[in-house]
Design a protein around this nucleic acid. Structure first.
Lengths: 155, 155
DNA sequence: CGTGACTCTAACGTCAACGTCAAGGCGCGG
DNA sequence: CCGCGCCTTGACGTTGACGTTAGAGTCACG
């Protein structure tokens, strides 16, 4: 599944006063390495919103949020990058659908079809998360029980 | 931190009717590989409760539970094996303390000192787990909110 | 007392997720 | 327009957690 992604590049004016970040600044800000950012891009997980004419990556606020989401899925749910790719594709599909949904030219039944598709995707993820939460709750309950026993002994 | 552990071996009668398991049976039962069991042992995470005179590992019910705990700490909390080693050492210390606690020869203030030590160890772990739970709850809440929005649209 | 299935140790292989290094481009303050 | 620091694309290295294989030993059963 080595899917090296080569994409069209959006050029960005360099002199303009915008709040786009270089890769170093972005990395510092969200607490990941530059290497990780480039790696995520290789896997198609993120694409910086643009490049300078010289070819340097520029990251937007949205891009940072997306990276944040990647880290969340990694550390919180323990997903690997391939699984995260799927989740992100779902996210993308959903906002794409949302867009089509608000398009004038979308018919009524097409609308509900799209929304239904969204729900399926989201609820699939929900099942996974809910299972994890249940397990974690049980773990915590056990731990608390043991702590309580101990506290009793201490009286 | 390559801490190859070499330990004293408890020999176990082979003809006796006991419920100790071979490594293969143990692995099948808890759903991990034999290699993983040997690896965990190398790192000092578990030691099968004994060996046959010929040198084959025998696992008790307790041993299995310990392996289960290892997997739980891996998949649920995302700890690596070094961190798990620490948690397990705490667990061990706690049951060791519990034992000393019920020993006749343990003085009163020594008792409370030990129990206090237990609490500190346990609550340290609790903080980690609780943080994870909070993060997961938030994640789930966000997801649910998005699902609800979607469901509304569908009405 | 074989024999076939299982297990032993030791050693090398693998895979994901990056780390690190080299040999150059870019960008901007002075 | 020049220098210094940040950035680029390869390409190879590393680490954790095992997988796999080899060659020898062990166990239960007939």
């Amino acid at each position: 599944m080595k899917e090296l992604v080569r994409e069209p590049v959006k050029e960005i004016g360099t002199g303009r006063a915008n709040d786009l970040l270089s890769i170093g600044a972005a990395a510092d800000l969200i607490g990941v390495s530059e290497r990780a950012l480039r790696y995520y891009q290789q896997l198609g997980l993120i694409t910086p919103c643009g490049r300078t004419p010289g070819g340097m990556r520029r990251y937007s606020e949205e891009d940072l949020a997306r990276v944040g989401r990647i880290r969340e899925l990694q550390t919180l749910l323990g997903l690997n990058l391939d699984e995260i790719a799927l989740v992100l594709r779902n996210d993308d599909r959903i906002s794409q659908i949302r867009e089509a949904y608000h398009d004038e030219r979308t018919g009524a039944e097409e609308r509900t079809g799209l929304a239904r598709e969204c729900l399926v995707l989201q609820e699939h993820l929900r099942v996974i998360v809910e299972a994890k939460r249940a397990a974690l709750d049980k773990f915590l309950a056990d731990l608390d029980a043991r702590i309580a026993r101990n506290r009793d002994v201490l009286k």
